[in-house]
Structure formats: C-alpha cells, structure tokens
Design a binder for these strands. Structure first.
Length: 387
DNA sequence: TATAATT
C-alpha cells in the first residue's frame, strides 16, 4: 500500500526539502491517486443527501439540488478564483463561493460550487472528490439546502480511551443519528490517540440526543467517563490564536532560519544545475526579474507557467490538477485541444503561484511516466516561431 | 481539551 497522506503532509510541514525524500513521497501519493482515481479517505464521504426525508414536503419545501456542491478540506491558502478554476475545468459554473471568516477574511476551508448542468456536478464528484491539493485531500459532495436544522451539529468528545478507534467511536455515536464525519486527534509524532475527537451529525437534534445519552457515560470497557459537548465554532478563535495561526500556517512549511538557509542553498544549487536560474529567495531574483532585468523562464506575472508535453489525446484538466496539486498552489491548468476533434494536442499548461513549488514539481515530474508516455515538464519559454 | 461542513 502506498504512502499515507499524513506522511506526505508531515514531510511537507517539516520542510524536508532536499528533493529526494519528499519528492518521492509526493509522487507516491500522486500515483496512488492517478491509479485509483480520486477517492476520499475521510469517513462518510458519500453524498450527504438527506436519505430519509427527501420529498419536497418533508424537507421543508426545498428540493435537494443536483447542481450545487459543497467542497470541504480545501487548502488554507486556496482562493475563490482557484476554486473556480479547478471546478470550472469540469463544466460551466453558475456560481462559486469560498466561505471566509466574516471578520478576518481567512478561508474557512470550504466552499460551494453550483453548476449549470447536473451532469457536471456529478462528474465533479466523480473526478475531484479525493483530489490531493498540497497537504489536503478535498471532499466534494452535494450540498443540502441550507437550513437551521443542519447547523451546529458538531460535537467535541474528550476523555476517550486511547485505544478507541475511529470506527468504534462511530459505532458508539451512530445510535443517535447519521454521522457526517468523525475524527480522533492523534499525536503528530507518535500517531497515538490523544483521547479527543469530533463527531458531526447530520442534524442538530441528533447531536443533542447524543449529548444527553453519552456525556458523562463510560463506553463499554472504559475506566473513565467521556465528555460530549457542542464543539466550539472554529472561526471564534481568540485574536492570539489567530495571530499564531497566521504565523505558523499555512505559509510556514519550513523550519527555523538556519534550516531555511540550508534548504535555500540546496534548492539554489539544484535549480542552477537543472535550469540555470535562482530561486525566489535569491537576492538576484525579485518577482521573476533579476536585477539585471533578465526574464526568468515561465514567469507570467500572475504565477509561474509550466509547459507539460506528451499528454495523451484523451488527457483532461483533472490529470494536471492531480499531478501538480500535491506540490503546492496551482492557480490554473489547461489542456490544449484540437478545435475540431476536441482531443488533446499532446500538451498543456499549469500555472503555479510559488517559484519553489513550481520548480520542485518540474524537477519531480519531468520524465514522469504517465501511462505509456514519458512527460516533458519545464517552465514555459517564450519561443518565437522559427522560419 | 479543539478540526476548518451549509453560503
């Protein structure tokens, strides 16, 4: 079995740069995805429609939409435009919204995409659910009609036996209603349970019943009672917590200054050898233009444009998202197609925000074997056509 | 003892 996502995530966070260790991990994770197709490894990943009361009358007069999707577990730094770009690669979008904190403007890590055509919504679930973007695995499912009854249905559970598994936690709570997600928090180093977790129910009344039934109770075999209460709203953080979050994530995937210097040095050398350019950390390069006014390949003003060559005729945008997404912020992908046949002409482009992430993607994916083809991946050059 | 799931 391939590398677990959390392994890749911790490697990315720890900033173990020197190409070899984590490049291999990212590729391994990517290959799992490419071979199996995106599939979510969160619990309850099916469409979270209301199963028991889907008639218009019983659900309060609202038909369940077949075009409107909720997208969860988005990378913290992903913008609404990037969300639109990703989902727009499937089909025409009626509307798209990234949900942000009203006060701080920070992304809350989820959003909504409403398609024009229900078939595109279905296709988006099939092709984008489980897609890995940076350190996250996104979840794509139908959005239910918004209503008060489905809000505030998230529970915080503490005092759990350290041996209790996520499955056992779900078994304990499932008697009170339909569980949307469950999670047990684990020590980042040892992977052992911290004895606390979350349960999100389909409806608030189910969560209320679970509190009544389980708060202060001992699970069978446990020596201590568990505490079950409504979870705090994550957006209601103290200003201090927000500041520390701003400082620590998501743009800090690197360790301290010394290690940064070291990895910059290694990266500079790697890039110099491979491409003859400096990283964005170099004093020589500011925003893609050196102090000598020389343009660096691939820099397009809004990001770094990457040329991907030798794609198959049936290649589509999702393959580019799947390949490049794990390396960092991707703002746009495009497969170039023949006007008449609509088949891929063998190449495409990917735009990435950060130079180092783009360079690492190129270094890792150039020469990558996709099916029976060996890809050529490089920064886009400004080749003028020759006579 | 705290994750980003209803605009």
């Amino acid at each position: 079995m391939a590398v677990r996502l959390c392994d890749v995530a911790s490697l990315l966070r720890s900033g173990s740069w020197a190409a070899e260790p984590w490049t291999g991990q990212v590729i391994a994770a990517m290959e799992t995805q490419l071979s199996n197709g995106p599939s979510c490894n969160n619990t309850s990943n099916g469409p979270n429609q209301m199963n028991s009361c889907s008639s218009p009358v019983e659900s309060g007069g609202m038909e369940d939409s077949k075009t409107n999707l909720i997208v969860n577990y988005l990378p913290q730094n992903m913008t609404q435009e990037e969300l639109k770009s990703l989902f727009g690669s499937i089909g025409e979008i009626e509307s798209c919204k990234l949900v942000r904190d009203k006060i701080t403007g920070q992304s809350l890590g989820y959003g909504f995409v409403n398609y024009v055509d229900p078939k595109d919504a279905e296709k988006a679930i099939n092709t984008l659910n489980g897609l890995r973007l940076q350190t996250k695995t996104i979840k794509v499912s139908y959005a239910r009609p918004s209503s008060a009854s489905i809000r505030d249905a998230n529970l915080y559970v503490s005092g759990l036996p350290k041996t209790m598994t996520q499955k056992e936690l779900e078994q304990l709570f499932s008697q009170y209603g339909r569980i949307i997600t469950s999670r047990i928090l684990v020590d980042q180093v040892t992977g052992v349970s911290r004895g606390v977790g979350f349960i999100r129910f389909d409806r608030r009344i189910e969560a209320e019943e679970a509190i009544k039934g389980l708060n202060g109770q001992k699970p069978s075999g446990a020596t201590e009672p568990i505490t079950v209460k409504f979870a705090n709203n994550p957006s209601q953080k103290t200003s201090q917590a927000l500041l520390s979050q701003l400082y620590q994530s998501p743009n800090r995937r690197y360790p301290g200054p010394l290690a940064q210097q070291a990895q910059r040095f290694r990266l500079d050398n790697l890039l110099n050898m491979a491409y003859g350019v400096k990283s964005r950390f170099s004093p020589m390069a500011i925003d893609g233009v050196t102090s000598l006014g020389i343009n660096i390949p691939g820099h397009a003003g809004t990001g770094w444009c990457i040329f991907v060559y030798n794609l198959a005729p049936d290649a589509d945008e999702s393959i580019l998202w799947q390949m490049f997404g794990p390396f960092g912020a991707v703002t746009n992908v495009k497969v170039i197609r023949d006007f008449n046949t609509n088949k891929c002409k063998g190449f495409g482009f990917v735009t990435m925000t950060n130079y180092d992430e783009a360079a690492m993607a190129i270094a890792s994916l150039n020469g990558y074997r996709l099916g029976d083809r060996v890809l050529q991946v490089s920064f886009k050059t400004n080749k003028t056509h020759k006579a």
